[in-house]
């Protein structure tokens, strides 16, 4: 079975500054892959090279089996993306947002109508179906964003800090949704700041200054660093050496 994502010495330079420095890793199909790092470590840049928003400066990478240099159009059909900034239209209703995103991913009308029912029902949002998105609570917006990002059943979904600013209960519910998607065979590539969320991932990589400093299952990492939690692992890796 081919891995969902492979990279080989993938690099991104902005002038003299190397944002992503020769990272090499593989993400397996159906895996929840945590992409950790401090602000400015290069997480978002790396993710943008994988989803076709940014052209790599060097190295190789393939997403869903397609090359990130030559086959970005094909990649786009096989991935879902939830950006760091909130990505729904505030002046459209919940229903219209679902219809819009379903439409631009080319879902047939019948399928869109089915998804509208299923998504709104699944999230328990019946009362909000015809409400403008700007007037629904943030937690629901995030859950709705995620549901919309995966409504066209992509092979891989990229989540860029999806739970920023959300309360712990909603975060918990959000992760249940991620688990459910993964259990249905979807590969989840997620960046996060929250170390407790790192524990939920199958494997995590920790980026420091554009390089991957560690990559393994959370339990293995904790053993390797003799740490009690992912938080300690992270601090040991990122704290400036004396």
């Amino acid at each position: 079975m081919l891995p969902a994502i492979t990279t080989d010495k993938l690099t991104k330079r902005f002038g003299d500054f190397t944002a992503v420095d020769q990272i090499t890793f593989e993400v397996n199909k159906g895996e929840i892959f945590g992409f950790l790092g401090a602000n400015g470590a290069g997480k978002t840049t790396a993710m943008r090279m994988l989803n076709g928003l940014s052209r790599p400066s060097g190295g190789q990478a393939a997403v869903a089996g397609f090359d990130v240099y030559r086959e970005t159009e094909k990649i786009k059909k096989h991935i879902g993306y939830m950006s760091q900034k909130f990505s729904l239209y505030e002046d459209l209703t919940v229903r219209e947002n679902i219809q819009f995103y379903g439409g631009i991913y080319g879902l047939p009308g019948k399928e869109i109508r089915r998804q509208v029912q299923e998504l709104i029902g699944g999230l328990g949002m019946q009362a909000y179906a015809n409400t403008l998105v700007k007037s629904i609570p943030l937690g629901w917006k995030q859950k709705l964003s995620f549901s919309i990002a995966i409504m066209h059943r992509p092979e891989i979904v990229f989540l860029d800090e999806p739970t920023g600013g959300v309360d712990p209960i909603t975060r918990r519910q959000f992760w249940e949704m991620i688990y459910k998607a993964a259990s249905e065979g979807m590969t989840v590539f997620v960046t996060t700041h929250y170390m407790d969320e790192a524990e939920y991932c199958d494997r995590v990589s920790i980026m420091v200054d554009g390089r991957i400093a560690a990559l393994d299952r959370p339990r293995a990492l904790k053993e390797q660093f003799g740490a009690g939690s992912m938080n300690d692992v992270f601090l040991q890796l990122t704290r400036p050496k004396p």
Binding site: G52, L53, S83, K85, F86, S87, Y101, I104
Partner: peptide, 13 residues
Amino acid sequence: ELGTMEVLLVSPL
């Protein structure tokens, strides 16, 4: 500004 452009660019449009 809203960040929706990014999502559109990642879509097949």
